[in-house]
Design a protein around this nucleic acid. Structure first.
Lengths: 101, 101
DNA sequence: TCACTGTGATACGTTTTCGGATCAAATAGA
DNA sequence: TCTATTTGATCCGAAAACGTATCACAGTGA
């Protein structure tokens, strides 16, 4: 399976967890993000590679933010996001490959 | 101006700085990311909203990683990324709006 | 001067996302 | 039971990203 598809699934799972934690429906989040419900569903299920602007709008609708960080800093940031041994899966793990598929 | 366009510019600037710091040409990064040079140029200049998979591939080609983090944690993470008072602009700032445009 | 490299920029055709509309399945509540 | 809500899923046309090819311009060095 492509590493790209895995990343999309991880993003979708992250959004879904955030949405359920906020007690929102798919339609509510889609409306907040300014996209249609079928399209937000695609994002949650990883069925489509949404545009950058769509990703940013969805993230912000859920109280999240997209960040670009050096790969070497990812572990430290993940530790900062889950101080207690929580299994929160804070972001889509890097897998540290670096290149293309 | 749309907040979306600003975010795209911030992403593009971030990529450009990372590319120059790595001493790579646009074509080299485009090749590593598996996209064409004109399209990578669009990403750098914010002329187009690349797909999620494209963003991830470009980021990894430059040794970066896309992360989803709670908006409340952004300041702490930025502080972690720039311990010295550096003006490194580590990510596209949240602006803390939360909703759509 | 010429050649080479890196970048900016455009055009064309293909592929994919997107909004809107529609229907079905599952769940919860009266 | 019936009804409403939520989600899964599909189709269509429009809009946008995408690859490829092409040209121009600035800089560098032989």
């Amino acid at each position: 399976m492509k590493a790209e598809a895995e990343a999309l699934d991880m993003i979708g799972d992250h959004f879904r967890r955030a949405r359920l934690a906020a007690g929102l429906t798919q339609e509510q989040v889609a409306d907040l993000a300014g996209i249609s419900r079928p399209r937000y569903r695609d994002v949650e299920t990883g069925a489509a590679a949404a545009r950058a602007t769509t990703l940013i709008n969805v993230a912000r609708a859920l109280g999240l933010e997209m960040m670009l960080v050096p790969q070497a800093m990812v572990p430290a940031i993940e530790a900062l996001l889950s101080p207690e041994g929580e299994d929160d899966r804070p972001a889509f793990s890097p897998q540290a490959e670096g290149d293309d598929e």
